[in-house]
């Protein structure tokens, strides 16, 4: 089971919408099995960069490689079925039960049905929830189902686009930690887009800071906290650091 997720490389990747470049000449190599957070303000290009991995966007220039293979090769649906995708609005199918939602990718790929109860258990949900409709679930439960659906594909590469953005802080923390455990246990490669530096620092092995379509900081959380990742990263790190200090001061 300790087989590792794939390597992902961005080579001179640029994406233009009209005249504006959302992503401008990005070169990154993401090591197998790593957990990378893409951080930045809105419009920094982090979601666009992520969506080029599973071809929801196509690069204007450059290419994206997964385990050395250009993602542009072959049909998009079969590529996407091999990559887990979790995003903020989740997109559970309202006309299908939770179990049907989780089993959706194996179904469309013509693969045998997955063990839904085991998958629910992995995201800390009771097996009985499988029979419910998504509408009957809380926001946190829905996103757990979203994670289970992504894992059910058997994919080793996970793309997470603001997966916790719409949830309350307690739920965020719970799901974040749980996901980090799964990342370890299943040996995944995870790329997570977030605008929350604290979340990035706590969950990821490596934090990449983007601004105006470019990479402006790239370091481990420890290096980030030590101020070794450049001024944009420092500005983003300063906020949670100051909050942490303030809370510590309140405790006395």
């Amino acid at each position: 089971m300790k087989q590792q997720g794939p390597e992902v490389r961005f080579e001179h990747v640029t994406k233009r919408f009209g005249d504006a470049a959302a992503v401008a000449g990005v070169d990154i190599a993401i090591a197998p099995g790593s957990f990378v957070a893409l951080v930045g303000g809105s419009g920094a290009g982090k979601s666009t960069l992520l969506r080029m991995v599973n071809r929801l966007e196509t690069p204007s220039e450059g290419r994206v490689l997964v385990d050395g293979r250009d993602v542009a090769e072959g049909p998009a649906p079969s590529l996407r079925r091999r990559i887990g995708y979790v995003f903020q609005s989740i997109g559970l199918m309202p006309h299908m039960s939770v179990a049907e939602n989780i089993a959706l990718v194996p179904r469309i790929a013509g693969d045998p049905a997955p063990d839904v109860a085991a998958l629910l258990e992995m995201v800390d949900l009771p097996a009985a929830l499988g029979r419910r409709a998504p509408d009957a679930l809380s926001g946190g439960q829905r996103q757990r189902v979203g994670v289970a659906r992504a894992i059910a594909t058997g994919a080793r590469l996970m793309l997470l686009d603001e997966p916790l953005g719409a949830l309350d802080p307690v739920t965020r923390d719970g799901i974040g930690q749980r996901y980090r455990d799964l990342h370890e246990r299943l040996g995944l490669t995870s790329i997570m887009v977030t605008h929350d530096m604290a979340e990035a620092l706590l969950l990821a092995d490596r934090v990449i800071v983007m601004a105006k379509g470019r990479v402006v900081g790239d370091a481990t959380p420890a290096e980030m906290l030590a101020g070794k990742a450049g001024p944009e990263a420092d500005a983003l790190v300063a906020v949670p650091a100051r909050q942490a200090q303030a809370i510590a001061a309140l405790r006395g």
């Binding site: 929801l56 649906p77 995708y85 995003f87 997109g91 559970l92 199918m93 959706l104 990718v105 469309i108």
Partner: peptide
């Protein structure tokens, strides 16, 4: 719901599967 369509594409449905299943 645009999220449902985004999910259908992101999960790797073909255009026909998206029409038929979603």
């Amino acid at each position: 719901d645009p999220a449902v369509i985004q999910a259908a594409d992101g999960l790797g449905m073909t255009a026909w599967q998206r029409l038929r299943l979603v």
